[in-house]
Write a protein that binds this DNA or RNA. Structure first.
Lengths: 116, 116
DNA sequence: TAACTATATTGACGTTTGTCAATGTAGTTG
DNA sequence: CAACTACATTGACAAACGTCAATATAGTTA
């Protein structure tokens, strides 16, 4: 009689243990991953921070291009990604395009993260 | 005398307004982006969730491969990324490698996010 | 209308990423 | 020791990404 025969229960549960709750669905994981992907870039995090730090919580592309140290098309590209992900709004006034944080957007991602 | 001459102040502040506070540093943005990059993948979010949902908050690779629907090397690859990012710990016991959530890791990322 | 300005779009290019098949490694079992 | 098991590593490949130069667009000014 081997040790395995003596301890069948513990051996069975040594791998493939049951769940204590439901884990995140594949669809929700995909959606959250897309949202996080928009944030997972140093330039985009800086852009978000710079927009938030501006007076009136608003900034145009010309405010951001120089401090971020990248070309204007690249900055516009990143801003577009942030708008599409729901973190920024864009409103054009005259020649300028003003970007503004979407209130609560970062908070809701933040809250989602801890429920994983 | 043009309108621009009459309203120099408002014209100047139409673009390139000053900051109300410091924005995130390039180094901190890079570090946070690296951390978020580890999370910004649907498979890795599911793996984190599955590990957390297991009894004792612990799971081995064999627990995760089948439900996630990817090859074993791919799952090991994702788990390694999560360990290196500080979200999981790995402890080998016998033939199995057990992964466990790092307490507070998701919370601190979550908190960092709202201070951007 | 013509010149100018701020921003967006396109196309290209090198880099990074996610995945798998094949193979390597450490530990177990007979 | 030899066969087996769970997991990790390597190498390859297609897809996605970040960046820029060039160009297009929309709005302003003279």
């Amino acid at each position: 009689m081997t040790l395995t025969d003596l301890l069948p229960a513990t051996d069975v549960t040594a791998c493939c243990e049951p769940l204590t709750r439901e884990s995140i669905s594949a669809e929700n994981a995909g959606a959250l991953a897309s949202t996080l992907k928009a944030l997972a870039d140093p330039t985009r995090l800086r852009l978000l921070s710079m927009v938030a730090a501006h007076v009136d919580g608003e900034a145009c592309v010309c405010d951001l291009t120089e401090p971020v140290g990248l070309s204007q098309p690249t900055v516009s590209h990143h801003l577009k990604i942030l708008v599409e992900a729901g973190f920024l709004t864009r409103s054009k006034r005259g020649l300028w395009a003003y970007y503004r944080l979407v209130p609560g957007a970062l908070d809701s991602v933040s809250r989602l993260l801890v429920t994983i």
